[in-house]
Nucleic acid binder design. Structure first.
Lengths: 225, 225
DNA sequence: TTTAAATGATAGCAATACTATCATAAATAA
DNA sequence: TTATTTATGATAGTATTGCTATCATTTAAA
């Protein structure tokens, strides 16, 4: 008997719930692998269908198009991460300790946690780093937002913003600082690996340095105010 | 007699230099308008050709594909911005004042400066906010980087990093802080307009608030160290 | 004025992004 | 158990995208 973590996803993101069938789960599993391997631009439903051993039309019964699938995956990731955060910061009283834990969770590569057999969290984390912002950097961001597609991201940001306010009630920009931490945990990681001169971590390429940078950035801001 | 600002672009970015002919200049001019209007995903050379009144094949003689064109536009923008920064911070001794000026330039919407008739800097700035990161968030980032496509971005980051170090020689993360300022000047702007709950500027939607936030972020970090 | 270079016009082709149809298999309800 | 809904597989087809090739014509340089 095993505890299964189920995330309730926004129904407007899919045509048929991918978590409700084998094929659906395979779509999630293999799309993560294929996007990781080829990048989102070169990723197509045709190739995905071949990998799974089904047909293109089969995929289209679950997802309207690859953009929706990407939004689904990112939304899933932010939900999952918010759960991780609430789990790992549970019972911690000191908001400073809490915030440090959050930064570490945001900036650390994840081991696949096997709770959800069809989602490889480690690969998904890598995908979010490279492809995540493409989910909202579009012309349709307004409509997608109306349909609540970015609620998990906004919720996570709100949670972190609240911890920031607990740390320092006077600090004026809790939400912007929260979104900055989230984005920079990913961007500094991408830069470190791909455009290292944009960072100070080019030599070691250690995640711990990103964590140190973010801690410094956040806690000097909060101590002062 | 008018002074013309000419930016020497990396030759590997194009097949034929777009600044060397009318058609080329039209490609730059109309591509900025069309990407601004439709977004990069829906932008095609076919539509661009129709707008200009030429043929698809005509565009392909200048740019290998739309990715290269986007990289060209972003590279041009970073070059132009670095010039703006060096121009507007010239003769300023105090590095703190300099850095404040830089933050303002990064976060402020630009008026089209008419110096370059075929490039509308104001629209281009908007494009960079929404599409800019797509230039490097790809599988080919490594190869593109080898060909020096991101040199203007890296140069700008180095310039800002140097000013940061002038402000505080002891600060440990000048380059990461520089790339953070650059990215956040844009992302907070995008969030403010499209996903306002990710920021603290949803009510006023004023650029000046982004500038205040970045100033606070940067100068508390630098004062402390 | 000859020659080279840039453009326009047209064609074509492989891949992408879908939609539709129908047969079959599997799960569910009567 | 049979009847019936539901999901999948197989196949086709269509418009658009992304790109290359050819050749005639205009424009600019030698």
């Amino acid at each position: 008997m095993k505890l299964q973590l189920q995330i309730k996803m926004n129904e407007a993101l899919f045509l048929r719930n991918p978590e409700s069938s084998e094929l659906g789960k395979n779509i999630l599993k293999y799309s993560i692998q294929l996007i990781y391997k080829t990048g989102f631009e070169a990723f197509t439903f045709k190739k995905l269908a071949e990998d799974i051993g089904t047909t293109e039309a089969g995929i289209y019964r679950y997802f309207e198009n690859k953009h929706k699938l990407l939004v689904y995956l990112t939304a899933w990731y932010w939900c999952w991460l918010e759960f991780q955060i609430s789990f790992h910061t549970n019972n911690i009283k000191d908001p400073t300790v809490k915030l440090k834990r959050v930064i570490k969770l945001l900036a650390t590569a994840i081991e696949d946690d096997e709770q959800t057999s069809y989602i490889n969290e480690s690969l998904l984390h890598q995908i979010i780093i490279t492809e995540g912002s493409k989910a909202y950097l579009t012309k349709q961001v307004g409509e997608d937002n109306k349909q609540q597609f970015f609620k998990p991201y906004k919720d996570l940001c709100a949670v972190i913003g609240k911890i920031i306010t607990e740390c320092s009630a006077k600090y004026k920009y809790p939400k912007s600082l929260a979104s900055t931490i989230i984005e920079m945990a990913h961007f500094q990681n991408f830069f470190m690996k791909n455009l290292p001169s944009l960072t100070d971590f080019g030599n070691t390429k250690e995640e711990s340095e990103i964590i140190d940078f973010l801690n410094d950035l956040v806690f000097t801001s909060l101590k002062k105010s």
